[in-house]
Simulated scan of single mutants.
Amino acid sequence: MFKKILVAEDLKGINEGIVSFLNENLKIEKLELVQYCDDAYLKYKKAILDQEPYDLLITDLSFEGDYREQKITSGDNLAMKIREEDTNTKIIVYSVEKRFSKIRKLIQDIGLNGYVCKGRTGLDELLICIKEVYKGEIYLSPEVRPALTRKDITELSNFDIEILKHLSEGHIQKDIARLMFTSTSSVEKRLNALKIVFRAKNTTHLVSIIKDLGLI
């Protein structure tokens, strides 16, 4: 299981509730909480410098402003900054946001590993999500899974096809990024989104599905 998790949630009651619930159900060596995105980013940077990086970030999307001036004002901006610098830290969003277009954009732009909707069963789903993400899977709450469905097949770009072709030839993500003159982060984001679209368990499964569909 993940050894070190950072939870970013501005509402103290929810924040502490998440930490308490996860402590009861998972064996996490270090579980930290913050109420501001700036604080989350500072903790993340310090952990990198200390060579003790976080394995997982759980963040809300909406953070209400108060007397403190903040440079990073939303969970999606926080996730984006962390993903731009690091492709290893897993990121789960825990939010009331259910707009498909918003969630689709987050997955495609950031390469989220999980998205859980707050609600009556939210914490139970969050627990499932963490376990799935730890196994290398991608998890979305059932009510927002249609945000990315197979109808998006027609939206496969030349960039997507090229990534998949390189992957089918046995290249790893780092090599694909070099061959395509792009970043490893960009490659990972697209693969994460495509795994959700095609409900693939991993990249090998994804390539198999794409080949069966005759797309490469």
Rank of each mutant, 00 (worst) to 15 (best):
R120H: 09
S141Y: 08
N15W: 02
S168Q: 04
V197M: 15
K118Y: 02
M180P: 06
I196A: 04
L148G: 04
T121D: 15
L106G: 03
K45S: 04
S157V: 06
T121G: 05
K189T: 03
V116N: 08
T182L: 03
Q35V: 00
T59M: 02
R178M: 08
V93D: 08
R150W: 07
P142K: 08
K135R: 13
N23M: 09
R68P: 01
A177G: 11
A147P: 13
T182Q: 04
F100Y: 15
V19S: 07
E64F: 04
I28H: 10
E97N: 09
S186H: 10
G65F: 00
L42G: 02
K165D: 00
S101G: 04
K201A: 11
K90S: 15
Y139D: 12
I172W: 00
K165C: 00
K151T: 12
E137C: 12
Q35H: 01
T73V: 13
A8V: 10
N88M: 08
Q70E: 14
V197W: 02
L33T: 15
N77L: 11
L194T: 05
D212N: 14
K30H: 07
L112S: 07
L194E: 03
F63A: 02
L57T: 01
V187D: 01
S208R: 14
I196C: 12
D50P: 07
N77I: 08
E132K: 15
D39W: 01
G114N: 12
T203L: 04
F181S: 10
I91Y: 04
V133A: 09
S101V: 09
N113E: 15
I107H: 06
I72E: 03
N77C: 05
V144D: 04
I91H: 02
G114Y: 11
K102Y: 10
Y134H: 12
Q51D: 14
L127A: 06
T204N: 14
K174S: 01
Y94C: 06
K118D: 07
G170D: 01
M80H: 05
I91P: 12
V197S: 03
V207E: 11
P53M: 01
G136Y: 11
S20T: 13
R104T: 05
H166P: 02
Q173K: 12
I138R: 14
M1D: 10
K12L: 14
S168T: 08
S185I: 09
Y44I: 10
D50H: 07
S183K: 14
G119S: 07
E84G: 05
L57K: 06
E64T: 07
L26A: 07
S74E: 06
Q108H: 08
